[in-house]
Design a protein around this nucleic acid. Structure first.
Lengths: 344, 344
DNA sequence: ACTCTGTAGGAAAGTGTTTTCCCGATGCGG
DNA sequence: CCGCATCGGGAAAACACTTTCCTACAGAGT
């Protein structure tokens, strides 16, 4: 309790009557052995004094920390919190601490957070989100990632290809294509799409996959049946309002993610339309928290928590092959009550 | 790039032709002034070399870090992720980094995480969760908290009273009481309750508040109409199954949190019962993500994100009065479609 | 002119670990 | 019985900063 409430290794060493070096060797038990007697004395003293190593000092001396970063857009979004849960689990298994950074969907903030983590000598970072088509921000982020890896850290991304890092990426295109096939098989011929932001790859890929399946089936998709909007619940609500205001003849509405689809269903309900009787609705992601919506949402299931785990594992693997690995995960179409055979 | 990819303050100082001290003073610009010329030279060199301060070294030298801890049971639970979002926002506003720890509802893990944060010299910690009636774990946690504050950190709790720390606590009892009044006013006389875990104060208080309101209104609550179970979606589902299996004459089911209520509604649906026609259902919390359930859930609204923000603000306030502050937040009853006038 | 004060800059002493040397003792084969 | 490697232990040098203390100097007051 001498200097401000801390007990240092020095004090432990003195209390045990050994040198600083010996105390250090006992209390993190690496490379070298220390005799049974002294070992006992040291552990006893450490326990008695309530010694707790100073993590910063250790990080400084070892030049490697026990921190692993996690960067998401918005932790309250269940998509990200599911991934976060997976990352947290793996980090914990490794005895590491996760540092949570939220960007609020500001690209520049990703860079700031990454350099903050670099300053902390974080061992690894999991970057969840989605790239936009803005090449310059992607390039800057890539640069930041390179600096991070240069300092001995590893980076893994979820759902963002094209960066110099390991990646776990859902096959958005194939998932959307498969979903389209199933909906066509159900009898739908006239579709509308809530396509999310125009500049987000995740949204674009899902749109493209769906669109190309329609095209292959000889189904036209009128431009006025494609609505862009924010990638959030409220974005879905608002996009739906616009779609309805403009008028649509679709029997099925594909929404590029579940969170937006939730807003869409709310908007349809508010507009007095029944799902699926008046309009079928399908989403993407299969967010666990949203599985209890009624009608239950037809969607493409992604193993979000597993994706977080996998990204964390990649980021923490010792594998030093510099070629970035990519793990592609397939989505599984889950037909539920929100889509039905069209009546008209 | 000399030693392993880092550029140190030393290198910046040499490059700028000044002393280490001067470089330090320029690059964190506190207490002392340094002349315009040198200041320019240093910043220029720092920029040119791509200098990034070593956070561990700074923490060590300053004996205070930029870390703030956040301890939750499960980040995938929307209750906690909402709180987390609030904490993250405030931490970010203060230029701090949040360290996320998840306990998986293991009390002991809270202590581990807290001491980990102590080892990192974290500035503050927000502890979200709920105390159980197990006094010994509470006492141990209190002890750990005291050690943390002794080292100059601050701790704020969400929803856990009786700890030596600032607290943001919803008035669970009053909220449940008010909810009961409203449901009674709606015409309900026979209730069932999914009461959650027996040992969790949050669950107990809500049960008690509801129960005492019934009692005051002269309404009996038969023991077989109170089901205990896990504080999760699946716990709600399973509790409901048991309730139905045992048979109930209730017209209204009060579930002590929204996440459980979600499971309850699913179980009722699976059992062919309609909400609210066959049975009204009410929850507690008003989880944002669950507001789009149908029928929309009658519940008691808690400003979760605000609670997280407030806890973070308390934990980061400079106010050094050692008397722990308590901020009590009232819940607001929100009647929605899941409860209706009973027909039988 | 001479002290006095305030200020800009640098040298060096922490900050709490880890780790590299170095040293003495012990065990062992030749 | 003597070198020789090994092994347990300690002194001290990093690690990358912050901060105290000291010095030189410029301007001001008498």
């Amino acid at each position: 309790m001498a200097s401000g409430g801390y007990v240092t290794l020095d004090q432990v060493a003195q209390h045990a009557g050994v040198s600083l070096a010996t105390a250090s060797r006992v209390l993190n038990g690496s490379t070298r052995q220390v005799g049974e007697k002294l070992r006992r004395r040291v552990t006893a003293s450490a326990h008695e004094l309530g010694y707790l190593p100073n993590a910063s000092a250790q990080t400084l001396a070892r030049n490697t920390s026990t921190l692993v970063g996690l960067i998401v857009h918005d932790i309250a979004d269940p998509y990200f919190s599911s991934i976060a849960a997976g990352v947290a689990r793996i980090a914990e298994d490794h005895g590491l601490v996760v540092v949570l950074g939220t960007t609020g969907r500001t690209p520049q903030r990703e860079n700031e957070l990454l350099s903050m983590l670099r300053a902390h000598r974080a061992r690894a970072v999991v970057l969840a989100g989605s790239r936009t088509i803005d090449d310059s921000t992607t390039r800057r982020l890539g640069e930041e990632i390179r600096m991070f890896t240069k300092q001995g850290g590893r980076v893994a991304c979820v759902s963002q290809e094209g960066l110099p890092a390991d990646t776990v990426v859902p096959d958005n295109r194939a998932g959307a294509t498969e979903l389209a096939h199933r909906l066509i098989a159900q009898g739908h011929r006239r579709f509308a799409i809530l396509a999310g932001p125009t500049d987000l790859y995740t949204a674009r890929d899902r749109l493209d996959g769906f669109h190309s399946a329609l095209h292959a089936a000889g189904i036209e998709l009128a431009p006025h049946n494609v609505m862009h909007g924010a990638f959030t619940r409220d974005g879905g609500y608002e996009s739906t309002r616009r779609l309805l205001a403009a008028g649509t003849d679709a029997t099925c509405l594909f929404v590029v993610n579940d969170v937006m689809a939730t807003g869409a269903m709310a908007a349809l309900r508010d507009a007095g339309l029944r799902v699926p009787e008046d309009l079928s609705v399908a989403g993407f992601d299969d967010i666990p928290t949203l599985r209890d919506l009624t009608p239950a949402l037809t969607t493409v299931r992604l193993p979000l928590e597993w994706m977080g785990e996998t990204a964390a594992r990649l980021a923490l693997s010792e594998d030093n092959s510099d070629a970035p690995q990519t793990v592609e995960v397939a989505g599984e179409v889950v037909l539920r009550e929100s889509t039905a055979v069209p009546t008209s």
